[in-house]
Amino acid sequence: MNLLEAKGISKCFGGVQALHNVSLTVEPASIVGLIGPNGAGKTTFFNVLTGVYRPDEGTLTFAGQPLPAGQPHRIARAGLVRTFQNIRVFPQMSALENVMVGFHGRTRCGLLGAWLNSSAVRREEREIREGAQELLKWVGLQEMAQRVAGTLSYGAQRRLEIARALATGPRLLALDEPVAGMNGTERGHMAELILRIRAAGIALLVIEHDVRWIAQLCERITVLNYGQGLAEGTPAEIQANPQVIEAYLGHPSHG
């Protein structure tokens, strides 16, 4: 069974067809690449997927259940979590607090709990803290736990965003251009992190410009062009597809 199944997704903004009949599937614990030229609708697709926008048409099924369209928090709690192209960490909170926020949906402490500060609540809080520290270590930010997120380097903020997303306990992690603006070494580190996340049983859907980088990572690639699905297949198939080469690889690619 597919983990994520998006069928015939369309989205219009004031007469501009941003997405037209886009379909995509992700199998459990697999890595799928989503590529396409600038303005092809990749980020819009992510926004529809994660509930920031509501699709005009189409269905989204996640682990056999329909995804609650347009409700980001419920989608996140269902196990589909994202990062953002223009990094959106909570800039004034510490790195640790950022990750602790990620645990919100998995913890229970309510108003009374906070006021009474019972032993159960204290235990929960301790577990969140330890879990967050664990995750920071996992992405290589253990030294940065007390740093204010906004002051971290670009690459560190990207990894912090991933740690925060992992804290929600996702089954599918959607990364929006995780290596944009990174150099070769950093790209290597990110690839290694992505493979480790997959090894932990979490599927990934990755938007990327750099086809060569994504091709070495993922099992399947979907190509978007002008808001429509252009091709779908293994990296080798995609790289050999003449339509893709014309639409996308024909342009000078960077990286």
Binding site: F13, G14, F84
Partner: peptide, 8 residues
């Protein structure tokens, strides 16, 4: 008015 989606 037209509904302008917030930039994400």
């Amino acid at each position: 008015g037209r509904h302008a989606p917030e930039k994400v």
